[in-house]
Nucleic acid binder design. Structure first.
Lengths: 339, 339
DNA sequence: ATTTTGTGTGGAATCGGTTCCATAAAGAAG
DNA sequence: CTTCTTTATGGAACCGATTCCACACAAAAT
């Protein structure tokens, strides 16, 4: 049987309230009793049962973290960042994956998690949350932070997709003198994809290149869809292909390879995300880096902030983290890839 | 204020015991009352508070998962596997990272997690746990599964490092006719490293090649240590280099590249782990695949098994998952890398 | 007709803590 | 020498469920 607070109280010859005070440093307590209690506690390795503490204090010191399928180093960084900050603050991380094959079932899962009272707050990375879900989420009155999706009225952490895509496009225009740049999008409703497309368009506009809709191909963030888009890009005379993520860029490169078209020399291919492997492929991929680790840290900080000032009605925060252009060789540059 | 079981009871005009029975399907209850209660529950979105349920039932339906730094896709797969199985069984995953820079502090963390009563079981991936820690861990009487470390007397999930290294070495000997194969180890006490070295030695022996200690270089699983080992390997006339993990193999390849020595043609380099990027480097790395996803799933299954039959004293399980040789080009093979 | 057995229900204890409140003793202020 | 604080402590309520037990009533068996 595990030692309980009553056991300690009995042994010390005091009431459980006194033991509680000694342990938590709340209220008055005499020096000598405190010392005696603490000794007994150490001696018997007594640790208060979280289950009881949670119920009594009405909080769990646990934050839920919902992420899409964790394969790839992409999300690992986020988890790491979250856990780092939470653990520093004595909080725990309850992890839940979001398999993309059945989004509905998964939403049920995290909604039920929220209602269970098992967590004090939740960080949600759910690409393409619908407003109906958001509404349900808001009903549970626990703090929520969304990642990578611009949910109005809630705390959100975003990366600056727009600027990233802008810089990338401008790089292709100014450094490599491209004028026919194809863009492969992600899923239609993806916030990331939309913003990146917007950045691409804006860069064209600012550099007096007319936007040509035929150069925009619809993809869905998979390698396969990148492959499939190549034909269309070439047909419309693209001299550069900007894929909305690295995954698709990889598909593009493999397809071009198959067609014996030299990437970097004959055609430029660039991506977005700076996936871990992007520097290792041939040619090393020019892409846009996303600060995944920072996203995790900021998300955790934001949620803790919200918890610690729940009474004060602060307006929702919208934190946009900046992206960084990573120039390697697939765009035609001849860098020493020290990145 | 959240709805409680008392609220529902009052509204239904019954006692809370009856509501509890209706919800849990335990004991006797009349059809009509059950129906009425369930309706009220749905109407008010009542969900029992886990904090209370946990205390009452003396379990949390939560399993702790302790992993080394999650960067790299390596561990993502494990998490995924664990979460998959646990969530299917209505369990939750409490995630904790193990930053390798301060192992002691981190051990404290998971030991304290175990004693807090916050979890019902724990899966620990702690490279180089010392026996002292194992002893402490055993004292908390909750189920434990160790990953990747052959802890005697406990449930462990391992991969067949020995056979993997054996197959790899034999591949180099039989297919590529190498006789001077260098081996770069990991940290001295690493179980993985030791087993791989053993497999390497055994393959040499079985193929009548004398083991030459000067061909074994000490590394520590970092890319840097791979780089540093190259000089020594070459000096001793190695025609092939077998690094105990992909990370080091990458270091070796980069160093050889720098020296203008063609990997695959002039010298063979192979790794171990089949890290996500290993197929993307130049040349694609021949390596040994570890079933990380299966490891996660098996770990979760094992711990649940243990929980559900705690009374029955089953002898500790030692599950060894098989590895698979992945032949790409860095060994000199000219495969179409469809892997 | 009486004893068993099977159902249905509420009250109370329990899980292991925290916290409010009453009370008492000791020291400070009047 | 009172009166008011300040300090110290225990008792009891409470957090929100589960579960054991007693009791009532109905149906089945003797």
């Amino acid at each position: 049987m595990k030692t309980t607070i009553d056991d300690i109280a009995k042994m010390a010859g005091v009431s459980k309230s006194t033991v509680s005070r000694a342990l938590n440093g709340t209220g008055y307590i005499s020096k000598d009793k405190k010392k005696k209690i603490l000794e007994l506690v150490k001696l018997h390795n007594y640790v208060p049962d979280s289950k009881a503490v949670n119920l009594s204090k009405k909080k769990t010191m646990t934050i839920g973290l919902v992420l899409p399928s964790v394969t790839g180093p992409f999300y690992g960084e986020v988890i790491q960042g979250v856990e780092e900050v939470l653990s520093e603050n004595k909080y725990f991380t309850l992890f839940m994956t979001f398999e993309s094959n059945s989004p509905e079932k998964n939403r049920e899962r995290y909604l039920s998690l929220m209602s269970s009272g098992r967590i004090d707050g939740i960080i949600i990375f759910d690409p393409q949350v619908d407003s109906q879900t958001v509404e349900k989420v808001t009903k549970f009155e626990i703090p929520v932070v969304y990642l990578g999706e611009d949910v109005h009225g809630s705390d959100v952490i975003l990366v600056d997709n727009f600027s990233g895509a802008y810089s990338m496009t401008e790089h292709l225009i100014k450094i490599h003198k491209h004028e026919r740049i194809a863009f492969i999008t992600g899923p239609a409703k993806s916030f990331d994809s939309v913003e990146r497309l917007r950045g691409y368009k804006f860069a064209l506009e600012n550099n007096d290149i007319e936007f040509d809709p035929s150069l925009v191909c619809r993809g869905d963030f998979t390698k396969e869809s990148g492959k499939n888009a190549v034909e269309n890009c070439l047909k419309n005379g693209a001299t550069a292909i900007f894929a909305a993520n690295d995954e698709m860029a990889l598909g593009v490169i493999e397809e071009l390879e198959r067609k014996r078209i030299k990437v970097g020399k004959e055609i430029a291919v660039v991506g977005f995300d700076d996936t871990f492997w992007s520097r290792y492929i041939q040619p090393p991929l020019t892409t846009v880096h996303q600060p995944m680790h920072s996203i995790g840290k900021m998300a955790a900080k934001t949620i803790l902030d919200r918890i610690n000032s729940k009474d004060l009605v602060k307006s929702p925060m919208r934190i946009v983290l900046s992206t960084r252009l990573i120039v390697r060789n697939s765009c035609g540059c001849e860098t020493d890839s020290t990145n």
